[in-house]
């Protein structure tokens, strides 16, 4: 581990990534799927109303993406800080 790249920094970078990913997680489910669902329902996605689509389909797809993006970025972070297995 480089002296300037400490465990503390690694943890900070991890937390920053978590804040970003959980903001997206919150936005697509609680935001688009519940709180703003009525407004989004004015927009159509094929035969779907958009708010309904986020609540029953879209949020789930985004959840999957979030986990794979997290796994990839954390693996990269591990290598950068030389803490990978």
């Amino acid at each position: 581990m480089h002296p300037e790249k400490t465990a503390k920094q690694y943890w900070k970078r991890n937390l920053r990534l978590l804040v970003i990913l959980f903001s997206i997680w919150f936005l697509v489910s609680y935001g688009f799927g519940i709180i703003f669902a009525d407004q989004l329902n004015q927009i159509s996605l094929g035969g779907y109303k958009l708010g309904f689509w986020f609540a029953q389909q879209g949020s789930i797809y985004v959840f999957i993406l979030i986990i794979f993006v997290y796994a990839a970025l954390m693996n990269r972070l591990d290598r950068e800080f030389d803490v990978n297995e």
């Binding site: 997680w25 489910s29 609540a55 029953q56 949020s59 789930i60 959840f63 979030i66 986990i67």
Partner: peptide
């Protein structure tokens, strides 16, 4: 649907 999948995040 959201509850039982979002928990995995």
């Amino acid at each position: 649907l959201m509850g039982w999948t979002g928990g995995y995040v």
